[in-house]
Amino acid sequence: MAGSIEKHGKNSYRLVYSMGFDANGKRIKRTKTVHVKTKKEAEKELAKFIAEIEAGEYIKPAKMSLSDFIQLWRDNYAEKQLSPKTFETYNNYINTRIIPQLGHLQLADIKPIHLIRFLNNLKKNGTRLDGKNSSLSEATINYYRRILKNIFSRAVEWKFLQVNPAEKLPKEKESIGKGNVYDENETRLLLKCLEKEDLKWRLYFTLALTCGLRKGELLALQWEDIDLESGTLYVRHSLSYTKEKGFFLKEPKTKRSKREIAIPSFVLPLLKKYKNVRLREKEKLQDEWEGGNYNFVFATWNGKPHHHSYPRTKWERFLKRNNLRYIRPHDLRHTSATIMLNNGVNYKTVSERLGHSSTRITFDFYVHRTKEADRSAAECFDNQFGA
Rank of each mutant, 00 (worst) to 15 (best):
K173I: 10
D364R: 10
T38D: 13
Y347A: 15
K132A: 10
L233F: 07
R145L: 05
F87H: 08
I361P: 03
R146D: 07
G25Q: 12
R278N: 04
L324Q: 11
T300L: 10
K80S: 08
F248Q: 04
N322Y: 14
A139M: 05
S265Y: 13
N323H: 14
K273E: 14
K215I: 05
Q81F: 12
C211G: 09
G291N: 05
A108M: 08
F266L: 02
N342T: 11
I5T: 03
L324K: 08
N164W: 06
L324A: 10
G20Y: 03
R97I: 03
I339Q: 02
A337V: 09
D287W: 13
R280Y: 02
P112W: 11
F381W: 07
H8I: 00
Y143P: 05
P311H: 00
L249S: 06
I116S: 09
N91E: 06
G131M: 09
F49P: 06
K245D: 14
E244G: 00
E379A: 11
T96L: 15
M1K: 12
Y310G: 05
S67P: 09
L102W: 02
I226E: 00
G216K: 02
K37Y: 10
S336P: 01
G131T: 04
H330Q: 07
R375K: 14
W201Y: 15
S357W: 06
E41C: 06
G25P: 12
P269V: 03
N302Y: 08
T38E: 13
K320A: 10
T89A: 09
K253P: 08
K371F: 09
Y144N: 03
F49V: 12
L341H: 04
L332I: 09
N91L: 02
I327E: 04
H114W: 05
F87C: 04
A262R: 15
G344D: 09
G344V: 04
F318V: 00
L324W: 08
I263K: 04
N92V: 07
L46P: 02
G20N: 07
L136P: 02
Y90A: 00
L354M: 10
D22I: 04
F365W: 01
K273I: 00
